[in-house]
Amino acid sequence: MTERPPTLDAVAQRAGVSTGTVSRVLNNAQHVSQKARQAVERAIEELGYVPNTAARSLAARRRGAVVLAISSEDPALTANLFFAEVITGVNAVIEETDLQLLLVLAASQRGQDRFTRVLHAADGVLLLALREHDPLSKLAADSGLPVVHGGQPLGHTPRHYVDADNRGGARLATEHLISLGRRRIATITGGTDQQVALARHLGYREALALAGLSEKRLAHGDFTESGGAAAMTRLLAEHPDLDAVFVASDAMAAGALDVLRERGRRVPEEVAVVGFNDIVTAQHTQPALTTVRQPIEALGREMTRMLIRLINGEQPTSLILPTELIRRDSA
């Protein structure tokens, strides 16, 4: 078998620096410490690394920015803890490079026009929270820039994406409720135009099917606290006998807990509740929320690392991040 040549990542690991630092050394950037420069040069020599000339040429033409486009028009989006954590992860990696981060909310036509304009100033694109047939996918693809998706859009699998094990995590949550002896288990899903919502619903259904339980107790939400409250209200009206609910996000679970408390339904004694994401507030709901943890900040970091590798001329593979059940008081 032919030995694969060393990569930029291998050089960075050997030198103990970021890939962005290696790229700056290769491109003779001025603001690199002498210590880092020497470490990179030593790693290159030890590994026999040969820089990709096409990537070097691309680097020379860089515009110096990365676009993070989110399919939303909500100006309060950064207050949403999920998106806030993703952005924190993205920014942590961007800080290691010479790149600037441009954030665009682009669900409306006006937002899409703005997205198209900023692409001319960008070296790569990160896409997040896309919906079915979302025009952002085509706009990004038509730009010819490297593109990395956060999650998989409904209807197609992009070439480069970072996602969490949504299906497996939802199955784990539902299996936990079953293990507690709950048999009338409802679910509150996300929007039906998002792959993440369908994957979590599928995991729920799989667990119930294996246990021979009914999956008829369902209400659709929208990944917001108010949406979760409205969905919980509908579930209680239609299925007052429910004894557990798997909620497809912590924000919706917080709304569901409020409604259960208002209706005098004790959690977890009468109704056990499990959420998904493990945002910070999951620890502070009443009662504290049992949930499925996905590494949200790591999602942002890995998306950005993948994009930088693409910008540097490499071809990384897509990545699925693991999820785990975090047990607290609600189930």
Rank of each mutant, 00 (worst) to 15 (best):
F115D: 04
T157D: 14
L213I: 12
N52R: 12
I311G: 09
A219P: 00
P158T: 10
T304W: 04
G168N: 10
Y49A: 09
A92M: 04
R63G: 03
L128F: 10
N80W: 04
A79P: 00
M303L: 15
E46C: 05
I87F: 07
Q30D: 14
M306S: 14
S57I: 10
A36H: 12
I44V: 15
I185A: 11
V50I: 14
T233P: 00
Q315V: 14
G300Q: 13
E95I: 05
R261F: 09
V196Y: 10
D123Q: 06
G191T: 14
G228Q: 08
V66G: 08
Y49L: 08
V274C: 06
L257R: 05
S226A: 15
T189K: 12
I320K: 00
V50N: 02
T116V: 07
P153R: 10
A106S: 14
P135L: 14
E41H: 11
E73R: 12
K138A: 15
L103H: 00
P51L: 08
P322C: 01
E3K: 14
T233K: 13
D278T: 03
G255H: 04
V125R: 01
Q315Y: 01
P287V: 12
T290F: 12
E324C: 01
M252S: 11
E132L: 13
L242T: 06
G313D: 03
Y204I: 05
N52C: 08
P268M: 09
K216H: 13
L257N: 04
A209V: 07
M303H: 06
T2Y: 03
N27F: 03
P5A: 12
P240D: 06
V50Q: 15
P316Q: 06
V93A: 03
A36K: 09
R131P: 00
L58Y: 05
A230V: 08
D98I: 02
L8F: 08
N91D: 13
G144C: 11
A237S: 14
T116L: 08
E225M: 14
N91G: 10
V245H: 00
V11Q: 03
A84G: 14
V292H: 08
T317N: 02
H239L: 04
V86W: 05
V292L: 15
L325W: 03
Q100G: 05
D134P: 04
E73T: 15
V86Y: 04
E95G: 05
A207E: 09
E132P: 00
V148F: 10
N166W: 12
R24T: 04
A256H: 02
A65P: 03
S143T: 10
Q100W: 01
G228D: 03
V259D: 05
V86S: 02
V93K: 02
L172I: 08
V162I: 14
R305C: 02
R61I: 02
T285E: 04
V267E: 03
A65Q: 04
H120V: 04
R61H: 07
